[in-house]
Structure formats: C-alpha cells, structure tokens
Nucleic acid binder design. Sequence first.
DNA 1: CGGCATCCCGTTGGATACTG
DNA 2: CAGTATCCAACGGGATGCCG
Lengths: 125, 125
Amino acid sequence: MSETNISVPLAPLPPRSCKGLTDVLASVGDKWTIRVVGELARGSLRYNELQRRVGGISQRMLTLTLKRLEVDGIVTRTLFPSVPPRVDYELTELGQTLRAALLPLSQWAAKNRQAIEANRERAGK
Amino acid sequence: MSETNISVPLAPLPPRSCKGLTDVLASVGDKWTIRVVGELARGSLRYNELQRRVGGISQRMLTLTLKRLEVDGIVTRTLFPSVPPRVDYELTELGQTLRAALLPLSQWAAKNRQAIEANRERAGK
DNA sequence: CGGCATCCCGTTGGATACTG
DNA sequence: CAGTATCCAACGGGATGCCG
C-alpha cells in the first residue's frame, strides 16, 4: 500500500506510474468494458439495445460492467419510471476522455492484429 | 470467424473494429503484460532482473507472459549459452509501437485515477 | 540462472430461473 | 423491460519442487 506512487508519466511508460495503469486496465481492460464503452461512444443506449449491440454478453456481465462503470463515473444511468421501465446509459465526460485515450490503442490493434496473428502462426509451427 | 471485420478506426472507437481491440486487450490488458512491457521500454533486461523490477510476479506468470509476447512478436528472447546461462529480453519494433500506443491510456490513468477512486468512495457509501 | 511441471484454490463468468 | 439470485464449470494464477 506504500507503493501507490504515481508521478505523471512523461517518460515512455514510466515504470513507477505503471501500477496506476495496471489498476485502470484491470478495470477497463476486461473482456467487456471496452466493448460497452465503444458502443456508448456514439450516444446513449438502453439496456437491451446495449446487450444486442455488444453481442455475446450475458445479462449478468452487462449488469456488473455497467454498475462498475457507473460507480467509477464513466457512465450515467437514467431511469424513466414508465411501464415498461426504460433505462438509458450514457458516457460521462470522464467516459469520453477514456474513449479518447483508448483510440491510439484501438488504431494500433487494427493496424497490427494481422501481423501478430501471422507471428503466432509462424511461431506456433 | 466471419466477424473479423476490422476497418481502420477513424471514427471514435468504431464498433466494428472493437473486436480487434478486445482481442488485443485480452492479450495485452492482463495483470502483468503492461508492467513487463513498461519495464522493457527502456532497454533489454535479464529474466531475473525483470522479475525483480516488476515486483510481485511469479516465475510462472513471468514465463507465460514473456512466451506470449515473444510469440506475438512484441519481445525478442536472446540466449547466451554461458555458465550460468543468461537470457535477455528486449522489445521489438512492434513492441515499441505498442508502448507508444499505450501512452495516452497511461496518462489518462495517472490523471484520473484519483477522481475515479473518489467516485467509488462516494458511490460506495 | 532460467526455466518447466504439478498441485490447488479463488475468481470469473455463463446458464438458468425468478422479480418489480 | 431491466434487472436480481443462484449454481456451477472453466480459467487464472500462486506455491512448490525439479531440471539443464
């Protein structure tokens, strides 16, 4: 616990602040969070619509993911007390900055995924 | 397998290419990979030195992590057949580009971690 | 020194059923 | 519609011991 030193990362991936990054990635780098944030990037969505768009996520995981994002201040949850009930999820400003910070990695992934798979192929044999 | 559509992400977190991102994060966003890449960012390191620097990683996890990074073409493994043996790990050019792509997220984490923890505090009570 | 093999337990997360 | 609750299988990952 005495190891929560996080100076601002000016140097390339400063080792001391890496623990902060690890924490964030533990929260953001799981199987579903990125997908959810990505779908919410373009605007608010209802629970079911979100589940449909993400594709493959279980109710349990969607709920847990959204709850954590809400607690972290990444998304807002808006309940319309109608019948049937309606709940909208939307990125907060913090969420938007996260999405922006994710972009370079997204581009890197798109650009290098095939190269990585080719590497795996070669190494695998 | 018919869903490997990855157009270049020009739009903010393009949903269709998000699966590529998810794959990459599944590979890169685990508990240790970022830390290892971060430590290797400044130059090559030996196995034990790497384990010491990362701190808290078990031999098993360090070995598995390095193996996957090697297979993916992110790091190189160089064996010096001396006695006792010596093995150096180093980022490849691809690894360097990954590190660069990780920087914005690293900065976001450093900048917003406290805010997130404050949010959790409020929401938790 | 730099690993690999094995055991084992805690967590993750899917499937299913139920509720306001 | 938008969840909650429970069960259970799969996986991650630490500890330990052995080897070239």
